[in-house]
């Protein structure tokens, strides 16, 4: 009788000790932790390998050519081909996006957040914007391609339509983050809705809106597929020497990411082997500068309520 009780107590003590130390669970817990870390590190290693691989391939071009690779235009000769034509095209597209998508997008966001009480129109608009944001970029290309303009203006308008929903969503989030007390302060001194929006909401929401729009610009500069559909030049072209400004903006054009694409499938090996990676580096530097600007802007002007 007594022995069995003792044995039971011993067993219980061992169980408790095991439960407190939880060696089994701890072992599994460590494994789980390590597994998650491994998955995150794999993701980061992929990024590192990608950047390193492209930099190594691009190195010879920059070592031999230096800045002239950035300031030279398209050429059939790999010795003199540069990305300048693409940079100009990308800048032209970006300017059109800034002039077109940003005012319309921010105005839409103001309407959605400040003017539209929960009406049927605003709910429909909200759903429409969310759906548009998910439409594959090449479908926007089909939209732009069904008009017949094969120039940089058509490209800019198509890109504006592509980024419009993203501008609206990011601007809406920035406006929503402005607390109501700020608005009420304006209404309290007799300001109208527009006056409150202009003098109270917008100054507070501006940092968030700017951050969002800079990131959107990066998206517009990196897009390739819609340009291919609406007829960007994927081969060599050169505007005649006496081309006027109008000739240039209504004629053939290319963009930085399109140059990456077209060089990667040139028959001359130099284009795909070293020039395309070098063009990628130029593209990535532009995008990193934009992203860095967005982060800097966010940290510099962040509002704390």
């Amino acid at each position: 009788m007594t022995t069995s009780i003792t044995r039971r107590q011993e067993a219980t003590q061992a169980d408790v000790a095991k439960a407190i130390q939880r060696s089994g669970i701890q072992w599994r817990s460590t494994l789980f932790h390590a597994g998650l870390l491994l998955l995150l590190l794999t993701t980061l290693v992929i990024l590192l390998v990608l950047l390193a691989d492209i930099m190594i391939k691009a190195w010879p071009t920059f070592a031999e050519r230096g800045v002239s690779f950035v300031t030279d235009g398209l050429s059939l000769n790999p010795e003199t081909a540069g990305v300048f034509t693409g940079i100009m095209g990308s800048i032209a597209i970006a300017v059109i996006v800034i002039l077109l998508a940003f005012p319309i997008g921010v105005s839409s966001a103001i309407y959605l957040e400040e003017y539209a009480p929960d009406t049927r129109l605003s709910r429909f608009l909200d759903t429409t914007v969310r759906n548009l944001a998910g439409v594959p970029s090449i479908v926007y290309g089909l939209l732009g391609g069904s008009t017949d303009g094969k120039n940089v203006i058509a490209a800019g308008i198509t890109m504006s339509a592509l980024v419009l929903p993203i501008v609206i969503i990011t601007a809406s989030e920035a406006i929503r983050a402005v607390p109501d007390s700020i608005r009420e302060a304006g209404y309290g001194v007799g300001a109208t809705k527009w006056e409150v929006v202009r003098s109270h909401v917008m100054p507070s929401a501006l940092p968030g809106i700017l951050t969002g729009t800079v990131l959107t610009l990066a998206r517009a500069i990196g897009e390739t597929a819609p340009l291919l559909v609406i007829g960007v030049a994927t081969g060599y072209f050169a505007p005649p020497g006496d081309a006027t400004f109008v000739d240039q903006i209504t004629g053939s054009y290319t963009a930085l990411p399109v140059i990456v694409f077209s060089w990667s499938r040139q028959t001359q090996a130099e284009f795909a082997d070293t020039l395309a990676p070098a063009a990628i580096i130029v593209l990535l530097v532009v995008l990193f500068v934009l992203n860095g600007a967005a982060i800097w802007l966010r940290n510099k002007t962040e509002n704390r309520w």
Binding site: L44, L50, K57, L215, V260, S264, I280, L283, L284, L287
Partner: peptide, 24 residues
């Protein structure tokens, strides 16, 4: 610093990944 690094990966244009898929 981990999160912005993941976000850098998100900002890489698909044409770059296309080139990398083909050449690496």
């Amino acid at each position: 610093w981990l999160k912005p690094t993941v976000e850098i990966l998100a900002g890489i244009p698909s044409v770059v990944l296309g080139f990398w898929a083909l050449t690496f």
